[in-house]
Design a protein around this nucleic acid. Structure first.
Length: 807
RNA sequence: GCCCGGGUGGCGGAACGGUAGACGCGAGGGGCUUAAACCCCCUUGAGCCGAACACGGCUCGUGUGGGUUCGAAACCCACCCCGGGCACCA
């Protein structure tokens, strides 16, 4: 017997919508809860991996509502980007047409899942009403000196004459469309100075207490602050270069130097040297390779430049190498190499027969190669005997006295390159005027509308460059001819502030009203995939801080509590449209219902972990809901007896279940909430078979309906109504539990001998240590194991465990 | 390579220093049925011993090898394997 999930789910979806249950406004009389799932790219089809995400967000929305919060959970669309553009190239259909269709399809699927979103605040990043504010933020960044143009490399397909995204570079560095080997090409591109905020962004991580530790660690490492020294090294025969090192204390151990292949001094050093040909070959190979390849596993290779540098502390001549493990983008693009204290330098020195000098005395018994630990400094003249910290301070003073160096801080974080040579993105609101140079578009001319075009294929530049009507304009300063910027913005810009726009989604005077944002911000819960742990979250933190500094954002940190969920794996790979392994939810909605689908999504595994999609799991959840339906509507005849142990037991179990479900929701262990309800349902099944009382049954069922309502809202709302309740279940208060009722009278105490379980005793749950020990030692089984041997120690953890240590 | 996670039955997982395998899936057995489906009940980590119904007990077992602890899936060290991120997928 199955309940009619199709009719019931449609009915409640209608009710929630028509009664605007999830549309909210600022209400200072209630505590607010701002609950956001990362807005999705509108691929046109939700799959069960997305559904997992929205099941979590809806569970929290409904749970917090029942706890009395004014809950806002909005939804929007990350609708710019490469996928829609590729689709347009393939089909010729304009992205704005396909995106609109896909959004409509996805909204139907959201509705069928029964998610409670406030659709009145819906936004889409390709909407000019939205992206004009991207442009506005860009202008603010420009005026504050935080946006600038600089040369940067792009992937270039020489055959298609187009810039490729990293994702379009496949296999052995070839173009995914035509298989041509990809080249690097330098272009002048827009960047945001996120590095100005590096310290702030780093320091604030300490206070993000409600973020997963792993995400905080990843962000810290990504910013990668390191303290050290920068100093100048002279080249024997003329010229010099700067190096950055975190270990200036080891400077006496420098036996060679390494320059990045792109270092500006390379050309001068190698030209005319005996190794010139080899060096040129090495440099051009290195410049073609991607950064990941250059740092990848395998032997570190390099080539001697033929030049020598002078170690400033001891005047030693040391060889200068070029090697691709040194990156131009980090530090100064040149390093002093100290093989005694750095393993990569050790490997390199060993390979090329370079001297190794230890400057830190390794600890007794050390048999490794490079020694990274602390110890007394050796072979270092005036630093000898000092520990790392002292030696660092001393040598930095020395470098400063010599006028060749100073203490510096380096970040791994680079500025944010936002230029994309793409059509389907937000136009950058800048002009190039022959007279005035770079000129910002005046704010009253925003938005710079993205024009409709016919040909989306990029030809050397952004497709916008081919649209003369777009490109040619007039300079607002001198009224002379000017050309518009034709690159568009990285879509990470769109997603860096949308959560602020939700607070005031239809404002056409400002990007949002600060007072409205003050009510809702910060997000009390933000949920999304772990793949966003670094870039999106960091950019969003940066832009929010910038808007705070402008006096617009009411908060510096947008995301109070962050939750990163695992991915759904199917057929051995993460579920994604490009891998062709997506499972759409529609068949599950039809055959088993949205409620059963949601329960299985919760049940499938710990929310933080990846999980494997199992086709037969949803039918198991439906089986549970069917059985629960029968229990809730049970009319098998009631017994008029008064309450006894059977009633106390099932009620106690119900109270324990309220406690367990509440605590599990609070600690984000949704996968164990469903089993708790299943276990109670199994218990209820036995209860109903043995003279059940109607009052006890009603009490247990109503508790269960409340617990179930954030997880399987349709069926629980229906059953709540059928029990004759006037109010909607969504507006009921979350149940509380009574510790006294929840307490179990007796528990199973295990008795161990030397840590191995040897007996189980049923004891009062308030047993004390002495009684527990006495009971354990009184056990015949335990006495047999003791066999007269001396009891050396007894560990007692009443009422769960006694461990008798003998022998 | 660097940063961050993760390895537990046939499968998804539970157990956050104290009974390893909750709950579910799958499988097997039984009941209901003319039959099947649905539903209900039971069994289900491996090996072994004593019983000879369904009872009782032992040994092993949480990727591998060490360590800490009265006690380790959990904590520490080393290694192996898998996944995410590495700045133009978002």
């Amino acid at each position: 017997m199955s309940y009619d999930h199709l009719a019931i789910e449609a009915k409640w979806q209608d009710r929630w919508e028509s009664e605007k249950v999830f549309e909210v406004t600022e209400d200072p009389s209630k505590p607010k809860f701002y609950n956001v799932a990362m807005y999705p790219y509108p691929s046109g089809e939700l799959h069960v991996g997305h559904v997992r995400n929205y099941t979590y967000i809806d569970l929290i929305t409904r749970y917090k509502m029942m706890q009395g919060f004014n809950v806002l959970s909005p939804m929007g669309w990350d609708s710019f980007g490469l996928n829609a553009e590729n689709h347009a190239i393939e089909t010729g259909i304009h992205p704005k047409v396909s995106v609109a269709e896909q959004i409509e399809r996805m909204k139907v699927q959201f509705r069928r899942l029964g998610v409670g979103f406030d659709w009145s605040r819906e936004l889409a990043s390709h909407d000019p009403d939205y992206y004009r504010w991207d442009q506005w933020i860009f202008l603010e960044l420009w005026e504050k000196g935080l946006a600038y143009k600089a040369e940067a490399a792009v992937n270039w397909c020489p055959k298609d004459q187009t810039v490729l995204a990293n994702e379009q570079v496949v296999g052995d560095d070839v173009c995914e469309r035509c298989g041509t080997p990809v080249e690097k090409k330098m272009l002048s591109q827009w960047q945001f100075k996120i590095t100005e905020y590096a310290d702030e962004l780093l320091d604030a991580i300490d206070d993000l207490d409600d973020w997963p530790d792993r995400v905080r660690t990843m962000q810290r490492n990504w910013i990668g602050r390191s303290e050290g020294a920068t100093f100048t090294i002279q080249v024997d025969g003329g010229g010099s270069f700067d190096v950055f090192t975190t270990r200036p204390d080891t400077i006496f151990g420098m036996t060679f130097c390494v320059l990045a292949p792109e270092h500006p001094l390379v050309e001068e050093l190698i030209s005319g040297s005996e190794t010139e040909d080899e060096a040129r070959q090495y440099v051009s190979a290195a410049q073609r390779a991607s950064e990941i390849e250059r740092l990848a596993e395998g032997d570190k290779t390099g080539v001697f430049t033929g030049a020598y540098a002078i170690n400033p502390v001891n005047e030693k001549r040391v060889p200068v190498y070029i090697a691709d493990y040194v990156l131009m983008g980090y530090g100064t693009g040149a390093i002093m190499a100290v093989p005694g204290q750095d393993q990569r330098d050790w490997d390199f020195a060993t390979k090329y027969g370079i001297d190794i000098v230890r400057t830190v005395q390794p600890e007794e018994g050390f048999d490794g190669e490079a020694f990274l630990g602390d110890g007394p400094t050796i072979n270092s003249d005036f630093l000898d005997g000092m520990r790392q910290d002292e030696a660092k301070t001393k040598i930095i003073e020395w470098l400063a006295d010599q006028g060749i160096g100073e203490a510096t801080v380096q970040y791994r974080l680079r500025d944010w390159l936002i230029s994309r040579q793409r059509y389907w993105g937000c136009p950058i609101p800048m002009l190039n005027c022959d007279q005035c140079g770079l000129v910002p578009v005046p704010r009253d001319q925003l938005p710079v509308l993205l024009p409709d075009i016919e040909d989306y294929l990029p030809k050397g530049m952004s497709p916008l460059a081919a649209d003369d009507d777009f490109v040619n304009t007039t300079c607002p300063d001198c009224d002379g001819p000017a050309r518009r910027e034709t690159d568009t913005m990285d879509t990470f810009m769109d997603s860096s502030w949308y959560f602020l726009r939700y607070a005031d989604a239809h404002n056409d005077e400002v990007l949002f009203d600060t007072e409205k944002a003050r009510y809702w911000m910060p997000l009390d819960q933000y949920i999304g995939g772990v793949e966003h742990a670094i870039l999106h979250l960091l950019y969003a933190r940066f832009i929010t801080r910038f808007l705070y500094d402008l006096g617009l954002s009411p908060v510096q940190e947008p995301f109070q509590r962050m939750f990163t969920q695992g991915m759904l794996v199917h057929k051995g790979a993460k579920m994604s449209k490009s891998k062709g392994n997506v499972v759409p939810p529609d068949d599950y909605y039809d055959n088993h219902g949205a409620d059963a689908t949601r329960l299985f999504e919760l049940f499938v595994g710990p929310p933080t972990d990846d999980a494997v999609w199992n086709d037969s799991g949803v039918s198991g959840s439906k089986r549970f809901l069917d059985r629960f339906w029968k229990q809730a509507t049970w009319d098998g005849g009631w017994n008029a007896r008064s309450a006894d142990d059977r009633d106390r037991e099932i009620l106690g179990h119900a109270h324990r279940t309220v406690k367990k479900v509440t605590e599990d929701i609070e600690r984000f262990r949704f996968n164990t909430t469903v089993p708790a309800l299943m276990t109670l349902s199994n218990e209820l099944q036995s209860y109903l078979g043995d003279e059940p009382r109607e009052e006890t049954h009603g009490e247990v069922i109503e508790m269960m309906l409340k617990l179930l309502s954030p997880m399987a809202p349709h069926v629980s709302h229906e059953l709540w109504e059928r029990r004759g309740n006037e109010s909607m279940l969504a507006f009921e208060a979350w149940p509380s539990w009574d510790e006294e009722l929840a307490r179990e009278d007796t528990v199973t105490m295990i008795v161990q001998v030397n840590g191995k379980v040897r007996d189980r005793l049923e004891v009062e749950s308030d047993i004390d240590e002495a009684a527990a020990e006495a009971a354990a030692l009184a056990s015949e089984k335990i006495q047999a194991w003791l066999d007269g041997q001396e009891v050396r120690r007894v560990i007692t953890r009443p009422p769960n465990l006694v461990n008798v240590v003998i022998g």
